[in-house]
Design a protein around this nucleic acid. Structure first.
Length: 306
DNA sequence: TAGCAGGAAAATC
DNA sequence: GATTTTCCTGCT
């Protein structure tokens, strides 16, 4: 179907789809082409309208209003995080960038694959498992593949997944798919809890044994921010570690600050991650996740100095 | 070409 | 309990 959504609150389709949150969108000329919720969509922004052509009546205006969170007041969110110069500059530069409300399983699975990989590589892995294990469908004469369901991947063998270029991530993905498929992981329950507890649940810290192998602090924060609506989640990868070290050294303990200065590629231990996370969330407040996304964009800008 | 980039788990101190 | 090593592949 074809429709246009009037944009009443600031929005930048380019910044939003280019910010490393989503892995199934690509730019083709003036259009962005995406596979979302088992269907395909072509989208382009013109002035204050978002034009869409989709493969299914299910992917309608209401769907994308929710997907891009267009009914939320971005200006007030950005006002709430603009506490200092670095974030204010990032917000000006990437104005209109929004957090996307993704499918929970696709998001969790994608970020399990994202460990030790950059964005092009993550996109490649996600495309590969979709083509191999996802449902095929046609749109405008081309074949597309839905993201595989937990059931699809629970049935796949680890060696099939490995040969899709996933490497050591293959068993993690299969075990997560199995756990979700079995109902061992209750997404509704995760969504209903406040941030701190929802995180503990994903990390299996509320029970004895680890359910989601391959899901550590960073992956959990990505899933919570991008698909569970936990806007205070603040995923910290190596890029964010560099931004914090560079622009927010006072949020770090003295020894950690010194270590990060010595080694620009140092990684945080689990304990340090928790400490830094608390510190940045206290600084940016309930919309810290938006701050993270804007600072991530700024860090990845050519010329950011990293 | 060898070396680098990049989170979580396992191994080891 | 904290630090180090291993797990992979694409890119340069």
């Amino acid at each position: 179907m074809e429709f246009a959504i009037p944009l009443v609150s600031p929005f930048s389709l380019d910044h939003t789809l280019d910010s490393g949150q989503v892995f199934r969108w690509r730019r083709t000329g003036e259009w962005w082409l995406g596979v979302v919720s088992g269907g395909a969509v072509k989208a382009r922004q013109g002035g204050d309208m978002l034009r869409c052509v989709t493969s299914s009546d299910r992917l309608d205006s209401a769907f994308f209003t929710s997907y891009f969170r267009l009914d939320e007041d971005l200006e007030s969110v950005l006002g709430s995080i603009s506490k200092d110069k670095p974030i204010t500059e990032a917000v000006e530069k990437f104005y209109g960038l929004r957090l996307v409300r993704q499918d929970r399983w696709e998001c969790l699975a994608s970020f399990i694959l994202a460990t030790n990989a950059n964005i092009p590589r993550i996109k490649k892995m996600v495309a590969e498992i979709s083509a191999r294990f996802g449902r095929a469908f046609e749109f405008e004469g081309e074949t597309y593949y839905a993201f595989p369901t937990p059931g699809d991947l629970a049935e796949a063998t680890i060696s099939d997944l490995r040969s899709g270029g996933l490497g050591y991530r293959a068993p993690f993905l299969k075990s997560a798919a199995t756990a979700v498929n079995n109902g061992q992981v209750d997404f509704e329950k995760v969504a209903s809890l406040p941030y701190e507890e929802s995180r503990k649940l994903l990390l299996s810290e509320l029970f004895g044994k680890k359910v989601l192998v391959g899901v550590g602090p960073k992956v959990a924060d990505c899933a919570l921010l991008y698909s569970f609506g936990k806007d205070e989640a603040f995923p910290i990868d190596v890029w964010m570690t560099r931004v914090i070290s560079d622009s927010y050294p006072r949020l770090l303990s003295k020894p950690l600050r010194a270590r990060l200065r010595r080694d620009g590629r140092a990684r945080l231990s689990a304990k340090e991650y928790e400490t830094v996370s608390r510190s940045v969330r206290r600084h940016f407040g309930r919309n810290a996740g938006y701050a993270q996304q804007y600072l991530f964009m700024a860090a990845r800008e050519p010329g950011a100095g990293f």
